[in-house]
């Protein structure tokens, strides 16, 4: 059932190696480039604004990992659902959520995607089937599986993507859930966004089973490792997993090897890794790669590329403007969206 882990991605990606014989179209590459660039620039801006103390809370950046979302979105259908942990800015951007409401959420404004009640770690967009944004490591694993349970119960052929970091793999929730998901043949695809560090603790330091794709073996879940710096590889793995789920054969575990260029959060001194290691992964950047393929195939002119770059820049600028001009929630909003019951008798004291 489980396939063998592929070689480490660090040895498989050569610059633009897939260009000449790629099965992917110009449109796909251009969309990947545009979407990933939006994620990258949005988060670079968010990081700057955070340092300038424009907003508070935590801020976990996805920078470097964008190919996972890009390949997942292109390899799936709009009716599929997505759930992830707290490193959740890129997923809704990839699904097409307006960056304005995401930036507003970072700012804690009432116009935010979660009305300023969720913040960076709790983005939601029901219109795009983006079901969070969850702050407790691993909690999204059973929940996302439950979303898939409902799809099967309702006899749809939708699948659910549940993303997690390599750290979440060690939570009991994962092991309890994997067992049920495969036993019940639920249409769920588990994506380990394996950037090799749970905060500052490397995979090697927390387990004897460092090949995370092997986690699926004990549950009889088909599993494989995937090059997470390659949207093509991610897309193909996702398509294969979707086929399995849609034909009723249950879950897949994808150990997608990636890297976050930035720290775990904004306060991370990154003493657990070398600058050389970061540089080595940055050399395989998926955005650069897509741009190289586009240029190599002469799919866009320099002017057209510049147009995309400018569009992205403008989107990000406008999202900041939108957020800064949006109001904070008013006091009464604290008592809204806690219960569906609209006349819930809250205790109100001094």
């Amino acid at each position: 059932m489980a396939t063998k882990a592929v070689a480490k991605p660090s040895k498989t990606t050569k610059k633009s190696s897939v260009a000449s014989k790629s099965k992917f179209s110009k449109e796909t590459y251009v969309k990947w480039y545009k979407d990933m660039l939006l994620m990258r620039r949005f988060e670079e801006k968010a990081g700057q604004l955070y340092i300038q103390q424009k907003f508070g809370g935590f801020c976990h950046l996805y920078i470097g990992q964008e190919a996972i979302v890009a390949g997942t979105v292109s390899g799936s259908r709009p009716t599929d659902s997505h759930m992830t942990a707290y490193r959740d800015h890129a997923h809704p951007l990839g699904l097409g959520t307006d960056p304005r409401v995401l930036m507003a959420e970072l700012y804690g404004r009432t116009t935010g995607c979660s009305k300023g009640k969720g913040g960076s770690m709790h983005f939601f967009d029901k219109d795009k089937n983006f079901m969070g944004g969850h702050g407790i490591v691993g909690a999204q694993i059973p929940m996302g599986t439950g979303v898939a349970f409902a799809e099967k119960y309702n006899e749809t052929d939708n699948v659910v993507f549940v993303s997690m970091g390599d750290g979440a793999v060690r939570q009991g929730a994962l092991h309890e859930t994997f067992n049920m998901a495969v036993n019940w043949k639920l249409p769920v695809i588990y994506i380990i966004e394996n950037n090799n560090y749970a905060m500052g603790t490397s995979v090697e330091r927390t387990t004897n089973v460092t090949d995370l794709s092997k986690i699926g073996l004990s549950y009889d879940i088909p599993s494989k490792s995937v090059n997470g710096m390659s949207p093509e590889a991610v897309h193909e793995a996702i398509e294969e997993a979707c086929d399995r789920a849609r034909r009723g054969d249950g879950p897949t575990l994808l150990d997608i090897r990636t890297y976050r260029y930035k720290g775990h959060s904004m306060s991370d001194p990154q003493k657990y890794r070398t600058k050389e290691e970061v540089a080595e992964w940055q050399a395989k950047d998926p955005i650069d790669h897509c741009l190289d393929v586009i240029k190599e195939n002469k799919w866009l002119t320099d002017a057209e590329i510049e147009e995309i770059n400018n569009w992205v820049k403008k989107e990000v600028e406008e999202s900041v403007e939108f957020a800064e001009n949006s109001p904070y929630p008013e006091a009464h909003e604290l008592y809204e969206d806690v219960y569906k019951q609209t006349d819930y008798p809250y205790i109100k004291e001094y």
Binding site: P142, M143, T145, V147, F149
Partner: peptide, 9 residues
């Protein structure tokens, strides 16, 4: 957790 997710959906 599976039940919570099912209730969300």
């Amino acid at each position: 957790g599976i039940a919570v997710g099912a209730s969300m959906n």
